[in-house]
């Protein structure tokens, strides 16, 4: 029995070792397996039902597309969960690539490596229908008077001061749930999120939720581009970049975006 198990394991390892392409050989944590990290929990619409291995959700789908492009079959992809802090801490990592809506910024780039962007996000203002009625036209002046909140550590939190410049101090929260709770309790009027998250929260989580407006994805200042995070100096970066380039060129990335992140129309654009 023992020998059979050993033999099975050996064949498994042998077949697995053939996964990956020339570029990735010997560069992954485990030979022939691409270990991808996502958030804990991973949020809709990036990963549906917190189950990335089902390929449901934009990031889950893109992750498998990239893995396939890099020569890994679906069953050669293994998922782990990390927080943001675990992703940036010094020392050995338990993932090859980490994908959880990391915005690419020059400051972060000094500490970790990012792939080419796989998505460029518009930023949207999540609020309630009551506030939308009260504010009416989302002119920048009208936005200054609101009480603003955001999820700490997101680009939204960093953008409020620059893009809106509110009169009162902004409030920051640990996660989406806390932000929605604060909106619900009337502690904040509005919060800034990437558009897909804002759409989801306004439709599903926030009672009476609404979007007041969006800052277009192609804005000149700080476009919010999502990249895959890798350890600083990870040799895999070239392979990931090549895969994303190929997916962008073939239009597959755009197709996935249309499939999972459509319905962004109809939200007024703030110039």
């Amino acid at each position: 029995m023992k020998t059979i198990v050993t033999a099975l394991c050996a064949t498994l390892v042998a077949t697995a070792a053939t996964a990956g392409n020339d570029c990735t050989a010997g560069k992954t944590l485990e030979d022939g397996v691409l270990t991808i990290a996502t958030g804990n929990p991973a949020y809709f619409p990036w990963v549906i039902d917190d189950a990335p291995e089902t390929k449901q959700g934009f990031e889950a789908a893109v992750a498998y597309a990239i893995a396939n492009e890099m020569g890994f079959e679906d069953d050669a992809v293994s998922w782990v969960r990390t927080s943001f802090d675990e992703a940036i801490q010094p020392g050995a990592k338990n993932f090859d690539i980490n994908m959880q809506q990391y915005s690419i910024t020059p400051e972060r780039e000094e500490m970790v490596d990012f792939s080419l962007p796989y998505y460029t996000s518009a930023m949207a203002i999540l609020t309630t229908a009551t506030v939308v009625e009260a504010v009416g036209d989302p002119a920048p002046e009208a936005l200054k008077g609101l009480l603003w909140g955001a999820m700490a550590g997101t680009t939204g939190a960093m953008m409020i001061d620059d893009a809106i410049g509110p009169e009162k101090d902004i409030l920051l929260y640990n996660d989406n749930t806390d932000v929605t709770q604060a909106i619900q309790a009337g502690q904040i009027d509005a919060a800034l999120f990437d558009l897909p998250t804002a759409l989801y929260l306004s439709a599903v989580t926030v009672e009476n939720g609404a979007l007041l407006g969006q800052f277009p994805a192609e804005r000149s200042q700080n476009p919010d581009q999502f990249g895959i995070l890798m350890e600083d100096g990870n040799p895999l970066k070239a392979c990931v970049d090549a895969a994303i380039e190929a997916l962008t060129a073939s239009g597959q990335l755009a197709a996935l975006e249309a499939q999972w992140l459509a319905a962004a129309t109809g939200v007024p654009v703030i110039e």
Binding site: F84, D85, I88, Q89, R108, M158
Partner: peptide, 14 residues
């Protein structure tokens, strides 16, 4: 503490 957390994610640095 929160401000430090914001800076942490801004600079990806502890």
């Amino acid at each position: 503490f929160r401000q430090a957390g914001v800076y942490k994610s801004l600079y990806a640095n502890f």
